[in-house]
Write a protein that binds this DNA or RNA. Sequence first.
DNA 1: TATTATTACGTTAGGCGTAAAGATT
DNA 2: AATCTTTACGCCTAACGTAATAATA
Lengths: 281, 281
Amino acid sequence: MLDLTELEQLTAFADMGTLSMAAEKLHISQPTITRTMQHLEEVFGVSLFVRGKNKITLNDTGLKAVEQARQLLSAADNALRTVRAFDKSLRTITISSCAPAPLWYVLPVLSSAYPDMTIASSIKSMPAICEDLDSGFCQLAILPQNVQYEHYVNIPFLKENLSVCVPASHALSERSSVTFSELNGFNFLLKSEIGFWDEMCRLQMPASKFLVQKDQFEFEELVRESSLPCFTTNLAKDEQNLLADRIKIPVTDSEANVTYYLACHSQVRAFDSLYFYNTCL
Amino acid sequence: MLDLTELEQLTAFADMGTLSMAAEKLHISQPTITRTMQHLEEVFGVSLFVRGKNKITLNDTGLKAVEQARQLLSAADNALRTVRAFDKSLRTITISSCAPAPLWYVLPVLSSAYPDMTIASSIKSMPAICEDLDSGFCQLAILPQNVQYEHYVNIPFLKENLSVCVPASHALSERSSVTFSELNGFNFLLKSEIGFWDEMCRLQMPASKFLVQKDQFEFEELVRESSLPCFTTNLAKDEQNLLADRIKIPVTDSEANVTYYLACHSQVRAFDSLYFYNTCL
DNA sequence: TATTATTACGTTAGGCGTAAAGATT
DNA sequence: AATCTTTACGCCTAACGTAATAATA
């Protein structure tokens, strides 16, 4: 039977060129390598080297053996990582969401319901989320529409309604509601990492420019110190009362009033979805 | 680092269901298996079993590990066989021929030129021979026509001329030559394992039937005791003087007078081809 | 009672490193 | 002289089997 540590010594020799350097690389003695190479020839049952008086080289068969050894070592490494990843996946609930707001509700519920599980969440584009569901990378997905997938449970969850926030001095400040087409052309302050909202804004208001702020503090400072309109939703928590001085005007387009859906593998975590449905609402 | 013998014990356990039976299967003691399973969990860094007081079972991760172990073990086995096969291929000259006659000339020359090499020859269909050349399965091919392959040396070798052998009483016995179309409709005795000749006869004489004899003795007996026509060529050696009583009439079709070509990888064994060219002719 | 897993324990084989030898540049 | 491979030698670990333990069906 092949021994992977022996194969590792073989590839080290192939990499280094001499037994001594291979030994040094692997922090073992030269005689050990010599013995291992002899033993490998026994195991393979073929000659792998051409031996000079104080020089040893791989022959053609040896090169073939090195090639096989490399493949086998990488396969072994893969096997190890595969099993570890699988084990971790059993102790991890992974959630892919199209937007941050639903996570604010889902994550606390999940982590208290599964205190010994790792909860991993990330915000992704919708195609990526669908792929995560398909591949099984995530067990739970949050989508802004009812994507009818076979074999997936898909139930409505939260509703999020977009409003634009303008200073009192703004042209639209007297309006009780607006549409995207009326907003199109204005420039807006936008936070980064808002999921599908970013893409939707660019789609619905192609004539507008969006000043995306990655840093929360800088974003808030700009909201305070500029008259540029920004957005909020019914789910946003404005603890700083940042938007106290601004007028909030609901956007009436259907695209601005989304219903989030929880999607998950049928059966497996369907009860979770129902649980959220009851707990969060 | 994973140890393949440990993985083998793991799969044995998965196959057998209990550690004791796995130990029995592998001819080792139960404590060894117990220790190995514990060690495997250390190496993988994950739990692989659910343990009762006197019962142990694979958990989900364990099943995954078994799956990986099986793949790895078979990969290791493949690696071993690949290297051995490669080594053997270095000590073997493999020849694929479309007909037996050229081999009678090539094989003795080859084995005396390479006394320490194994000479392996087989008679195959032409597509199979071309595939053997492409895949490198054979180093030397003998084809009945000049197949122009890139990167292959291809030189003319022997000529073989077909004659039909009929008893003196036969309708054609006075002819000095015949064509396939004249022979078409007669039934013939044929030896098996004559390579492309078999297929060619059926192609050129579709109205004929061929009584193919696998056994040499039975074939000879039928030639002697029947008046059915058979075939011979200029290369055939009739040591028994089997055909002494028969009239040999050359077949004039170009398909019945073939030139064999030696094909091989350019450079590698081109000199062999030239050697045959000079030695055999 | 028979079977199974695990722990304890003693033995031994084999693997490793040090040292030395032989050989090449 | 320096480098490299291989052999010789001695130590010591670590792997194995036997025996014992505990628990189950």
